[in-house]
Design a protein around this nucleic acid. Sequence first.
DNA 1: GTGGTCTAGACCACG
DNA 2: GTGGTCTAGACCACG
Lengths: 134, 134, 134, 134
Amino acid sequence: MITVDYKDRTPIYMQIIKNVEKLIALGVLKKDEKLPSVRNLATELSINPNTIQKAYSQLEAKGSIYIVKGVGNFVSQSNKEAKDNYLDKAYEEIEKKLLDAINYGLDEKTYNKWEKKLRSVFENDYSKKCDKKI
Amino acid sequence: MITVDYKDRTPIYMQIIKNVEKLIALGVLKKDEKLPSVRNLATELSINPNTIQKAYSQLEAKGSIYIVKGVGNFVSQSNKEAKDNYLDKAYEEIEKKLLDAINYGLDEKTYNKWEKKLRSVFENDYSKKCDKKI
Amino acid sequence: MITVDYKDRTPIYMQIIKNVEKLIALGVLKKDEKLPSVRNLATELSINPNTIQKAYSQLEAKGSIYIVKGVGNFVSQSNKEAKDNYLDKAYEEIEKKLLDAINYGLDEKTYNKWEKKLRSVFENDYSKKCDKKI
Amino acid sequence: MITVDYKDRTPIYMQIIKNVEKLIALGVLKKDEKLPSVRNLATELSINPNTIQKAYSQLEAKGSIYIVKGVGNFVSQSNKEAKDNYLDKAYEEIEKKLLDAINYGLDEKTYNKWEKKLRSVFENDYSKKCDKKI
DNA sequence: GTGGTCTAGACCACG
DNA sequence: GTGGTCTAGACCACG
């Protein structure tokens, strides 16, 4: 379930953080469910335990998981909390990009085009998702 | 005109690249205009000349400027090219974020809200910009 | 009566020690009263018996309980002893925090404010306690 | 200036964190002043660089310092901010201890005694501090 | 078995 | 030279 991509330039511990957050948001990992242990995940991914440790302790600092020493690591957010959290952050980033683009001279005509394109991208991709579920 | 923010985590050479690209897109730096020399900019910003060198050579690789050895560094893009370039990239990033959000479970109702919010953000910010010009 | 909180970072055996000491200080557990057996408490709390064993043997080392092998664990302190003991320790900790704060630059004006705030906190909370008893 | 005590059971990285925070609160380290580099401090204290790294990155997460990659670590809080921060935290801890003591049966007579004792402790220790400064 | 801390040492990007 | 990431491997407390 948790994977790392060595070709990706983002640090391994960061990839693991994002991966776990995604699994929680998608409901694959549920509240109070146990995550793989530091050692198990380390051997499974052929990664040093310290790297997993770093990822897990940062996830704890962010409030996504809670750690019980000597017992294990557990999901602390509900699926919904994690999802809302992620989507809020995503929206903020998009808004920031938009403001930046306005600064660079984005005009009304171009913005209208963007809006249309994004709408059609959403509808295409979203309907595909829904089809899968049905 | 060109500034760097040490507290920003993005590398200084990257900040300079973005800064120059922005100045070109905004028309502050025009086609074939001379950029400050590596040495001058380095002393002006109290930065290692190697860092400026790195920024300029990557700008050349990207096609934003051309370097004439022993003479200087010059803008190679027109205002319009640079702007279109930037806006295309910005759109791509927004679309990528959107697709990512759909993956995380963005639903239609939320997307409609986003569209509205972005529209109002655009209109507010855009009108401010226009007022300034008049 | 005795409970443990897994999300609390303090070790479970320590939580049990504090819990027992509190019950003695409050007079819920009286002198020479029998404590739950290691096995019973372990199954009741779904905890490893070794953990309970550790807590009990440390309570014995502190003089709070006495252990009669093959018979059971018994409270050795009177309510008053345990209470005085606890309060002395609490005072020591507060004094230590105060000295530390002075080291960090606590001035007279701020200390006066603290004294007042603590007094009002005490009076509020204390009167609530008394009301309950009546 | 920064020291570690091996006999102390608190982790080394934590000791360093507290130490740095204290030096900032006391005004020994001023805003935007450079801290010793990871490597220098490591060799000076005969400690592994990773341990210093951990301390520094947690100090950054707390907002006490800011890190400029490839340049160094710098104080981000003013003396006053750090001091107020510390004193607020100290007061909270004292109040918590007090509420706890009330729960354990602290009565009015004993609290009056505590207040007096703390007052005299403060006055003794505080005047010593002031004498030193004069 | 589980997480937490630490050492020794390497390589990287940035300046 | 500076911080950031990572490996290999050790020892600890807790359960």
